Every structure is written in structure tokens, then in C-alpha cells.
Simulated assay, not measured.
Amino acid sequence: MGGAGGTNHDWAKLVLVDGGWPVTEENVAVITRWMRQENGPDNWWNRNNPLNNGYGSGGGSGLGSYGTLVDAARYAADNLKARSFYTDIVAGLEHGDDADATAAAIWASPWASSHYGNGTHWSTTPVPVVTAPAEAWG
């Protein structure tokens, strides 16, 4: 995956594949919504770190970067699976059938200190498909 034509929805699917979670419409929706909260849809590949993940990025606060979006997807999946405080997010992704329930688990987790306003700063509108520059994919 990657190269020219790689979109935010493709990246969300790559996180799911890397995590061993089902690639469902609900799972892609929650990950793309999460990405929108972190970087906005028009620059979702910012610092090759769509979820502002601190794990493996050199930025513990989530402001680090990865060499490629492929690396970022692997580290995002690894981080979610490695930390006990993300088990509810992982459970939601394993079920793959309720983006809203998985989003609530994201808000309750320590991923963002703001907890996305416990959902008040989280939009459920569809996220537009936006292609990242080919070089972001490596």
C-alpha cells in the first residue's frame, strides 16, 4: 500500500490491517474521524503522523514524525495493542461494528489530554477522501 493515490481512507485501512482488526466501514469511519481531530482532513499526513502518535515518533507528546506513512500506521497499531489503557479502543476495533462506541473509548483513553471534549469536539460527519503526496508514503 502507498505511493501515488494513497488516501486518508487507505491509511486508516492500513492501521487496521497492521493491527489485525477487521477492515469495516465503521472502523474506517472512526479512524478517519480520529485523524480529522488530530490534523484535519486537508493535511492529514502532517509530519507523517496522522494520529499524532508519540510511540516511536521521537515526540512523546505526539508531535514527533515518522519517515513514512507506512511506518506511522504500524506504530499506531502497535501502540494501541501495547498499552493496557487502550484495551477498550482495541475491543471496539476488534468488533468493527460501532464507530460511535469506539470513538467513546478513544475519548475516555489518555490518547489526548483534552479527551476531545468527551465527544463535544468530535464530528461524526463523513470525512472526505484526501490523497497524500506520494513522498509521504515513502
Rank of each mutant, 00 (worst) to 15 (best):
D71F: 05
Y66C: 06
E135S: 12
T131Y: 04
Y116V: 14
S123G: 15
G56A: 02
H115V: 10
G56K: 01
A134S: 11
T124E: 03
V90S: 09
A103D: 03
G138D: 06
S61E: 06
G96L: 01
T120F: 07
K81S: 06
N79G: 07
L63K: 13
A77F: 02
A103G: 09
I89L: 06
G96A: 07
A104T: 12
G119H: 09
Y86W: 01
Y55D: 10
G58R: 08
G138H: 10
I89Q: 05
S57D: 03
G96P: 12
D98P: 11
R83H: 09
G138F: 01
S84G: 09
G62Y: 06
T124R: 14
S61N: 14
T131S: 13
G67H: 05
V129W: 06
A136E: 02
H95P: 10
R83Q: 06
H115T: 14
A103L: 00
A91K: 15
H115Q: 12
G56L: 00
P128E: 08
G58I: 05
S109C: 05
V129I: 15
A136I: 01
A134G: 10
N53L: 00
A101V: 08
T102Y: 02
A91T: 15
S123C: 05
S123K: 11
V70G: 09
T124Y: 13
A105S: 11
S65Q: 11
N79P: 00
A136M: 00
R83K: 10
P133V: 08
L80A: 06
G59K: 04
V130W: 01
Y66P: 02
W107F: 14
D97H: 15
T68M: 03
L69S: 11
Y66S: 08
W137F: 06
T102D: 05
A99G: 04
S61I: 03
G117H: 09
F85D: 12
H115G: 13
L63C: 08
N79L: 00
L93Y: 09
D100Y: 13
S57W: 02
A82C: 00
A134W: 01
A99T: 10
A103Y: 02
W107K: 07
A136C: 07
G64C: 05
S57A: 07
A104M: 02
S123N: 11
A132N: 06
T87G: 06
P128S: 13
S109R: 02
A72V: 11
N79I: 00
A104I: 03
I89D: 04
G60H: 03
P126K: 04
G64K: 10
W122L: 04
P110G: 10
A76W: 00
D71C: 03
S123F: 03
I106V: 15
G58A: 02
R74D: 08
G67Y: 01
A72R: 03
S114G: 14
T120C: 07
P126D: 12
D78Q: 10
T68N: 09
D71W: 07
A73E: 06
T125G: 14
T120I: 10
A103H: 05
V129T: 15
A103F: 00
A112H: 11
W107L: 01
K81T: 09
Y75I: 08
L63Q: 12
A134K: 08
A82I: 00
